[in-house]
């Protein structure tokens, strides 16, 4: 008999369909994924959902094989309930419900943002970090306080990743990381409006200005440089404010945009000024993935936070501060 509890997690909130397997000792046995890559432009929710449905079986098989377990060894099945794109979320939820029903195992509905933080804590060993969550669809600064991850600041309009992706696509170089790669060939910084409000940020004015400068003949490389520098400066600044406000000593950057080297470099320097520490999350656990859903699902399952299949609807606008995180109050687990 093995002594570990095993949770299988399914992620499908946006581009990625992922299946992960996590154990109660904090081991990630598998983290397999397939990514929908639209050729022409941004994500089309319906097409992405079709992609997820078509790869689900194969990704699941790969994950089980990598984990070296059979389906029967799974103790709980977790899925991303939100936030995310409705059609994509529903595809993952359907697979999870079918598995839970067939195996007669409890179902766990996971908040995608909480999962990014939990896999970050697991992989870095941080206990109580201030977190910058930056991705294509999300931008917020959060930290744990009184049983939940509280939102200290967030975007007032579009997400940071979305701003950079949209710029890249519209000037014809493609989404991230293209704008950051091209920024290294930028020579001149063109001033752009950096709108910071308390710990909130706004990127739509920045995007509009950068696009209009692109139309009036500014070099795309210079604009990439200016835009990435402006966006990352704003993000680092609100993170710095949150760090100063809370007095905490650990900093995580999670979500797809955490892959940015320049952003990591800025955050790392900022954190050093405050005598705090910053650790980077391994690349395979940074973007959207199934392992983070499996691990968070496991924490929830161990705290009795399961959901009946008939009540397991998806929540495209699920906020991070709606979720209770009782494991943060329990030092033996954190």
């Amino acid at each position: 008999m093995r002594g570990e509890v095993i949770c299988l997690g399914i992620e499908s909130s946006a581009h990625t369909f992922g299946v992960g397997v996590a154990t109660s000792s904090g081991r990630i046995l598998a983290n397999e994924l397939a990514v929908y890559r639209p050729v022409d432009s941004g994500i089309h929710p319906r097409e992405a959902a079709q992609h997820h449905a078509s790869v689900a079986h194969e990704v699941l098989e790969r994950a089980l094989e990598r984990a070296g377990i059979g389906l029967r060894e799974v103790d709980a099945v977790a899925f991303t309930a939100g936030p995310g794109l409705g059609p994509c979320l529903r595809t993952g939820a359907t697979v999870a419900r079918a598995l839970a029903y067939r195996l007669n195992r409890p179902l766990v509905a996971v908040n995608h943002g909480v999962a990014h933080i939990e896999i970050g804590r697991l992989s870095t060993g941080f206990r109580d970090p201030v977190v910058l969550y930056v991705a294509g669809g999300n931008t917020l600064v959060t930290t744990h306080n009184a049983g939940r991850y509280r939102i200290l600041g967030e975007t007032l309009d579009i997400a940071a990743g979305n701003c950079l992706d949209a710029f890249g696509i519209k000037v014809g170089i493609g989404p991230m990381p293209a704008p950051e790669l091209l920024a290294s060939r930028g020579e001149r910084y063109v001033p752009l409006p950096m709108k910071v409000k308390g710990m909130d940020v706004s990127f739509s004015g920045l995007l509009t200005r950068a696009l209009s400068l692109a139309r009036t003949g500014h070099r795309v490389e210079d604009l990439c440089l200016s835009l990435t520098e402006a966006v990352y400066s704003m993000l680092t600044e609100v993170l710095e404010r949150a760090l100063a406000l809370t007095g905490k000593k650990e900093v995580l950057v999670v979500g797809g945009l955490a892959r940015s080297r320049r952003l990591s470099e800025m955050v790392s320097r900022m954190v050093g000024l405050h005598g705090a520490s910053f650790r980077q999350i391994p690349d395979d656990l940074l973007g959207d993935n199934g392992a983070m859903i499996a691990w968070t699902g496991l924490l929830m399952y161990l705290h009795g936070m399961t959901v009946p299949i008939e009540e397991s609807r998806v929540r495209p606008r699920y906020r991070i501060d709606e979720v209770e995180v009782p494991w943060m109050a329990d030092p033996s687990r954190s």
């Binding site: 669809g137 579009i158 997400a159």
Partner: peptide
């Protein structure tokens, strides 16, 4: 409206 916007930020689509 601002509050609702923060709940899940819509993407700019082409």
């Amino acid at each position: 409206e601002i509050r609702a916007r923060g709940r899940y930020v819509e993407r700019v689509e082409d």
